[in-house]
């Protein structure tokens, strides 16, 4: 198992490199002149040349890529063309807000979504099920920024109990987390309902009932765990997605997360900023997908056995070939 984890982590290196090259290439050929954006239209030719020389923008495709990767290996992500602030410092400053929001929103999604899904599945085709499905349909079809605006309207403008903007106190996070989490809770509820319904019909659940197990314990002990794999998948994917920052929500609540930083970088052709963000997002994605796979093996012992068996097979084959 440890070997599997190490291998998966090492795989992140080529994946991240590919992502860098891909994004760099797009930015290189994208229209727009960083110097013009930075210095303004009235800037003199000399000033522009000086700017380009300072940031190495006068070099070709390969030297620039090479320089970037070389600096990256020294832990240097460069500085923003406009603010001249170190990209790694900016990311380090903003990342905690993004991580905090992503984790809280995911937790909210699970805490609200799972019970809804369980209730709906155990009360299939009753009014509880219909109500839960109607609510989740609504939650999943409305965009999170709409919820954000409605929440601000209710809690900040009318009731005046929650701050509309800012990031200093925990009270600032209530509305953004709910706005993002509602949608996730809807997806979790629908997924857990459908996979539970599948498991409820399976033979081993009848076996559990035939043993004399209580209906509630049958659900918690036998049904839940066996229906969690798809829920783990979508939760992991959603969390990974949120690690890229939630641009609109950050904008609405003025939270200095990764989303607004990345968007600013893209809008102004600020190559080091975009690349820096993309690297961090790619790494998070890789780690979270690994985490999801590890959670699978905890949920379902069959998967753990198959990983171990696959590795054993490989080692044996290597022995034969050598």
């Amino acid at each position: 198992m440890a070997g599997y984890i190490v291998k998966r982590i090492l795989w992140l290196i080529p994946i991240t490199l590919m992502v860098i090259i891909f994004v760099y290439t797009i930015l290189f050929f994208a229209p727009g002149d960083a110097a013009r954006v930075a210095l303004g239209n009235s800037a003199s030719e000399e000033a522009i040349a000086e700017f380009n020389a300072k940031y190495g923008l006068d070099l070709g495709y390969f030297p620039r890529l090479f320089n970037y990767i070389k600096n990256l290996l020294h832990g240097d992500m460069g500085v923003s063309y406009y603010t001249h602030v170190s990209v790694s410092k900016q990311i380090a400053d903003r990342l905690p807000y993004t991580i905090l929001m992503a984790l809280l929103a995911t937790a909210f999604g699970l805490i609200v979504g799972l019970p809804m899904g369980i209730l709906a599945a155990t009360h299939q085709s009753t009014w509880i099920d219909s109500l839960a499905m109607a609510v989740t349909m609504f939650f999943s079809s409305m965009p999170s920024f709409w919820f954000a605006l409605i929440l601000v309207m209710i809690f900040s403008i009318h009731l005046k109990i929650l701050p509309a903007v800012g990031y200093e106190s925990w009270r600032n996070y209530i509305m953004p987390v709910i706005a993002i989490g509602l949608q996730l809770s809807a997806i979790v509820a629908r997924q857990s309902r459908s996979s539970m319904l599948e498991v409820i019909r399976s033979d081993y659940v009848t076996t559990a009932r035939a043993k004399g197990q209580k209906e509630s314990k049958t659900i918690t002990d036998h049904v839940l765990r066996n229906s969690m794999i798809p829920v783990v998948t979508i939760t992991g994917t959603a969390l990974a997605g949120l690690m890229g920052g939630a641009l609109l929500i950050e904008q609405i609540f003025s939270i200095p997360g990764l989303g607004t930083y990345l968007f600013g970088g893209i809008a102004s052709n600020d190559v080091p900023v975009v690349l820096g963000c993309v690297i961090v997002i790619a790494m998070f994605h890789g780690f979270l997908m690994l985490l999801v796979d590890l959670v699978y093996t905890v949920v379902d012992p069959r998967l753990k056995s198959s990983i171990i068996a696959a590795r054993a097979r490989k080692t044996n084959n290597r022995g034969v070939n050598a």
């Binding site: 076996t207 004399g212 197990q213 765990r225 066996n226």
Partner: peptide, 24 residues
């Protein structure tokens, strides 16, 4: 019924492949 099931009357199911909980 719960006190009877598994205690006084027990059942063996047809397909052992699916009758056992795979995660226990």
């Amino acid at each position: 019924m719960r006190s009877i099931r598994g205690n006084e009357i027990a059942m063996i199911f047809q397909d052992p492949m699916t009758a056992l909980n795979p995660t226990m």
